[in-house]
């Protein structure tokens, strides 16, 4: 084992713990905090199925953003879709060829779409970055971290593309390294500078993810404005602390 590889093994474990621990922590916090009042933004669905549909539409098509701003929507949507495609492409480094869905990942379609996703991702990010600089309103609300995060992800996409097109790496060894992490059997990591840069940036992203705005997906599912059912007259909505106030003065009896 090279020293470099040992360092990266440690970094990987730390990043994974911070990432999943941080996400779980936030989700638990959101679950714990009650929503004392009914505040769905109407027109809102009348049933649970309706809420699922509303959220599905938001998650998959960014429905509200589409209504709000077409440019941000197109760039944002391209970026997130590319991210999803890139994720699928990377799965082949994470799973073993024995798994039954291996052919679903290791085929021409997923792999080549995954390639192009690197380019479309850069286009989406560049668009978002341009809006931040060019539109006075968006510039006003942006802080340093907003720009840096875009640059970081651009760096990840750019270095990823370079690995594919400019400086190939030993993917067999890379896969062995990753599988080794799963099996707690550390393996060597190929010491290509571009690959290391790519991985370092990804690990950094994973670490800052839970403590930054990057963790915005759970917020969508927990926003009472979107996830509540519009039935306040039919069903009494009462939080625990609301009930405690009632119990104290008995005025609702």
């Amino acid at each position: 084992m090279t020293v470099l590889s040992i360092i990266y093994v440690v970094l990987f474990y730390v990043a994974i713990i911070v990432l999943f621990g941080g996400i779980a922590n936030k989700i638990m916090l959101y679950k714990r905090v009650p929503a004392p009042l009914k505040i769905p933004v109407t027109p809102a669905p009348l049933t649970t199925g309706g809420v699922v549909y509303r959220l599905f539409y938001e998650v998959v098509f960014f429905n509200s953003l589409f209504r709000g701003n077409k440019w941000t929507w197109i760039f944002g949507w391209i970026f997130h879709l590319s991210l999803l495609l890139a994720f699928f492409r990377h799965l082949r480094y994470l799973i073993s060829p024995d798994v039954f869905f291996w052919p679903l990942i290791n085929n021409m379609v997923v792999q080549s779409f995954g390639h192009y996703a690197g380019f479309t991702m850069l286009i989406g990010l560049a668009g978002l970055f341009a809006r931040r600089i060019l539109v006075d309103r968006v510039r006003y609300i942006s802080s340093a971290s907003d720009y840096l995060m875009l640059l970081l992800i651009m760096g990840i996409a750019g270095s990823g593309l370079m690995i594919v097109y400019a400086s190939h790496t030993d993917i067999i060894q890379l896969k062995a390294f990753i599988m080794g992490l799963f099996l707690f059997d550390p393996q060597n990591l190929p010491a290509d500078p571009i690959l290391l840069a790519h991985i370092t940036m990804v690990l950094f992203l994973a670490v800052i993810f839970p403590v930054s705005k990057l963790l915005h997906a759970p917020g969508l599912f927990f926003a009472p404005t979107r996830n509540q059912i519009d039935n306040p007259r039919e069903k009494r909505h009462l939080s625990e602390w609301g009930a405690a106030i009632e119990a104290e003065d008995g005025r609702n009896n």
């Binding site: 905090v33 931040r132 539109v135 926003a223």
Partner: peptide
Amino acid sequence: KLGKYRSLQVFMDTCVKCGACTDK
């Protein structure tokens, strides 16, 4: 308030500064 209103806690965290609301 952060402990009593999920809306506040979630809204404080979630904004990505996308700017869609800026002209609304």
